[in-house]
């Protein structure tokens, strides 16, 4: 059963069409990435399905029912930036969210631990750093233990440790069978956590598909050895070799689709080369994304 069904959703701001006749279905359990350049309509789309932006026309349904505020109590969301009461502590802000969502306050400590704000829970929100505010927003989204999480740029403002923690958290939540809708322009982020994605451009849906885990009919392998020049000479003879290019201190080899890391390694060892680095590269979403955007330009 689709968990979210969007039909002909449309939003105009004066002359600007922010979202153009959008149709989209998101199945339960999927981790869905919503991609698009700045101003492509991601936040507007999420704003509409979360009741803060009035659609010019069109409709959406949650769990097969016409969307209403009752559904939103069971959906955890972040929209654009963390919005909290600046003079209230994290704890008080979450208490208020509990009142609105009608959930038990016992969840508060759990989520504060989960997002690493437990120690600072009694400090006023306005004294938090941007990353801490963002963490509180994520904590608040997790409060009702929702089946659906909607995250608009969730790692915005986080430090690298924070980013990887939040991504890990998203992946864990996804593994527990929840549905996640992630809007981002960080392709790498979507690549790491999403199973499917859609691309918006100027409000138009220009692509939906799965996040590829292969590189089409090629396999990309990155290698380096102590002596990269000898390595370069040898790989030319690899039977599955197609082409290669230099990275900074590594070589990226495009191989035929039946190549594997083991196979290449075996070949190199028999040719007297011991690699110090060997990785199979997954298809880069960024390349996919740029390709699709340029096709639709």
């Amino acid at each position: 059963m689709p968990i979210l069904n969007i039909q002909n959703l449309h939003k105009e701001y004066g002359r600007i069409t922010a979202v153009n006749q959008l149709n989209l279905t998101i199945e339960a359990g999927s981790v869905f990435g919503l991609l698009g350049p700045n101003g492509s309509g991601k936040t507007t789309t999420l704003g509409m399905i979360l009741g803060v932006t009035n659609p010019t026309s069109g409709a959406y349904s949650w769990f097969g029912e016409t969307g209403s505020h009752e559904h939103r109590k069971r959906i955890g969301s972040i929209l654009e930036k963390p919005n909290f009461y600046p003079t209230f502590s994290a704890y008080k802000n979450l208490q208020l969210a509990c009142l609105i969502k009608e959930v038990q306050e016992s969840r508060i400590d759990e989520v504060l631990e989960q997002v690493g704000l437990f120690e600072r829970r009694h400090d006023p929100f306005r004294t938090y750093s941007l990353g801490m505010k963002q963490r509180l927003a994520i904590g608040s989204a997790l409060l009702a233990n929702p089946d659906i999480l909607i995250l608009d740029e969730p790692t915005n403002g986080l430090d690298p440790k924070g980013i990887s923690e939040i991504r890990q958290l998203i992946i864990e939540i996804a593994q527990s069978g929840k549905t996640i809708i992630l809007a981002s322009h960080l392709l790498d982020e979507v690549q790491k956590v999403c199973s499917e994605f859609a691309i918006l451009n100027f409000g138009n849906l220009i692509h939906t598909g799965k996040v590829d885990d292969g590189f089409g009919d090629q396999v990309l392998i990155e290698v380096s050895a102590d002596d990269n020049l000898t390595l370069e000479a040898k790989i030319l003879g690899y039977p599955l070799y197609e082409k290669h290019r230099w990275l900074k201190d590594k070589i990226e080899i495009h191989c035929k689709s039946n190549a594997t890391a083991t196979d290449l390694n075996q070949y190199l060892v028999t040719n007297g080369i011991y690699v110090n680095h060997l990785t199979v590269i997954k298809k880069n979403l960024e390349q996919q994304f740029m390709e699709i955007l340029s096709q639709n330009a």
Binding site: L50, G51, V52, S68, H69, E70, R72, K73, S77, L79, K81, N83, F84, Y85, P86, A97, I100, K101, E102, S140
Partner: peptide, 21 residues
């Protein structure tokens, strides 16, 4: 007016109040 300037109206609505509520 604080709710509007802090954006907390938006958050309350996202959290599950209808705007009329």
């Amino acid at each position: 007016s604080n709710e509007y300037s802090y954006g907390t109206v938006k958050q309350n609505v996202i959290d599950g109040l209808s705007r009329k509520q």
